[in-house]
Design a protein around this nucleic acid. Structure first.
Lengths: 101, 101
DNA sequence: AAATCTTACGGGTGACGTAACGATC
DNA sequence: GATCGTTACGTCACCCGTAAGATTT
């Protein structure tokens, strides 16, 4: 499982279908379909009830959606923390090489 | 950024070097080196101070380590939640098809 | 028929491994 | 010179796109 799978899954859940989700993700439906399929296989069952008109989450899918969002949110936070720390670090070094403090 | 990068990063941090981390991850050093490089480039700066004898985290690396662990932990929880929900679901269906409750 | 998801098939990027190199103790 | 990380290079998996098929309204 990779973050990509979670991003795709959340998009399908939020858009209520593969077509719209694919458009939002700037990929095509078949690709999205396969990735969700891989994810479902890895987890051991379906996350969506595929309807022709509407695609709905299964109970398991609903439970997973909450967790997936937290993973993605935490991943964003991780990136921000690192970037801010690196900026601070770079600043310190730059000051250090010039004038300390 | 993908979970792979975080798994690799945490391994290097915990093992205190690329060689041991690569062995633990069952990949080779060059691959690991490149993936960490990609991660550092994406975040905007170094996460490790490469010493010949020991590889240590930079301050930014230390900050990122906490966050990365939380992401990976949350990802594990997400998988467990989905698997348990799917087991429950499959169970319900099986009961439902046989004798309800 | 129109919209949706899936299956089938090719192509290109990139993750990976092997080999060679550089650097430090 | 032994150990570590990096650079160079080739290969193969897999992510993605295009095309065709199945299903429902």
């Amino acid at each position: 499982m990779e973050l990509r799978h979670l991003r795709y899954f959340v998009a399908v859940a939020e858009e209520g279908g593969f077509s719209r989700a694919a458009r939002r993700l700037h990929i095509v439906q078949p690709t999205l379909s396969m990735q969700i399929r891989d994810l479902e296989n890895e987890l051991g069952g379906p996350l969506f009830d595929r309807g022709t008109r509407r695609t709905r989450l299964t109970p398991a899918g609903r439970a997973f959606l909450n967790e997936a969002r937290q993973v993605l949110g935490q991943a964003d936070r991780a990136q921000n923390v690192a970037r801010m720390a690196l900026r601070g670090e770079a600043g310190s070094v730059r000051i250090g090489l010039g004038r300390v403090r």
